[in-house]
Write a protein that binds this DNA or RNA. Structure first.
Lengths: 192, 192
DNA sequence: TCGCACAAACTAATGATATTAGGATTGATC
DNA sequence: GATCAATCCTAATATCATTAGTTTGTGCGA
């Protein structure tokens, strides 16, 4: 039999696709092994445990999302940048539900600090420079944005909005506009 | 040997406590069986599957949260009611992390519609009556609140706020005040 | 009070997953 | 072409979920 040519990267990439197809929760070493036509224990030469597999997918997801977000925000400012940022998150959640779920897999502080998650927080924070907020308000705004985007994406994905009107698309637009307006008013407040 | 005196309710209540202690993800029929000093298969006389167990805990969690929320909001209006509602959610998440996680266990439409989740959505929506918003804006506001509270609680629980200043408590207050201000401005906007 | 009948809990067995230990084989290297 | 390490495999153990079939409390009627 020829070799399968496994590697940690290939395994994690495949696991990422599997997560998108089947859901991150049902991501399993056994399923990945089947994908490569390899026996389950063979994977242990490359990943140490299911936990490491999932952690790898989580890091991949965070990296990918951070990448997209930085790109989307680049060259924009103010409301324009805000919209680009939040839309990137929401689109990512819808296009990659498995990776999106993976991005919330609990990481130890070490990994988390070096991950795309930290980068993501920085972009978010930097993006808000356009609003001329006070130092602390910018942090509060960063957290507000992050919370809203995460929560909205989760609820939308779970179908929580699909049994009431109007379409969630409208709420999304209205809410983001609202947050923009709020941050502008925070900026003014500072000078009063 | 005397009988253990199991029942679906007892099992699910115990599972809820277990979830809070060990995490909803590691909630298992085997663990519940150990708790009652009973063999694993004995549970099948009362619950049909792990899925039903988890679903039961999810419904319990949603019911409990809805109960607390209704009570907290009762007799309040406007900003006061808003604060009561969001604080109830956040406190619930911190005091019952397992139940909080359980509350996001995917339910079929049937169960979801009859669950505390639907009640929760109604309280949220009703609470916003105090802001004199337009019909659609009230829905948009409901979703904004729900998204923010869920996202903030998740991020805070995951420790995402604990490696930057200031304390998340401050952001929470500032953000909720901000949302209140936003809804007030939406209300005025309507009459302009 | 006796015994019956049903419900509650048990034993036994199967199949999936994760993980470890140790053996074989491929394929690059000298 | 022999060597050797990395790669993949077989075998074995443990935990969990689930089903089938069996024993046994226990409350209720005779």
């Amino acid at each position: 039999m020829p070799r399968a040519g496994l590697s940690k990267d290939k395994i994690i990439a495949a696991a990422g696709n599997l997560a998108d197809d089947e859901g991150f929760d049902s991501l399993t070493l056994a399923a990945v092994a089947r994908l490569f036509n390899v026996r389950l224990p063979s994977l242990y030469g490359h990943v140490a445990s299911v936990h490491e597999l999932k952690k790898g997918v989580a890091l991949l997801a965070l990296h990918s999302l951070a990448e997209k977000t930085e790109e989307a925000v680049a060259g924009r400012a103010g409301k324009d940048a805000l919209i680009a940022l939040v839309n990137t998150h929401r689109d990512f959640a819808r296009q990659h539900p498995g990776l999106f779920q993976a991005s919330r897999y609990p990481l130890d502080g070490q990994s988390a600090a070096l991950s795309g998650g930290a980068r993501l927080a920085r972009v978010n924070h930097a993006m808000l420079r356009g609003y001329a907020l006070g130092e602390e308000d910018r942090v509060h705004a960063t957290r507000l944005i992050g919370s809203f985007v995460l929560g909205f994406s989760l609820l939308e994905l779970a179908g929580s909005f699909s049994h009431s009107n109007p379409d969630s698309e409208l709420s999304w637009k209205r809410d983001v506009e609202g947050l923009d307006a709020l941050f502008q008013s925070w900026a003014k407040e500072k000078h009063s």
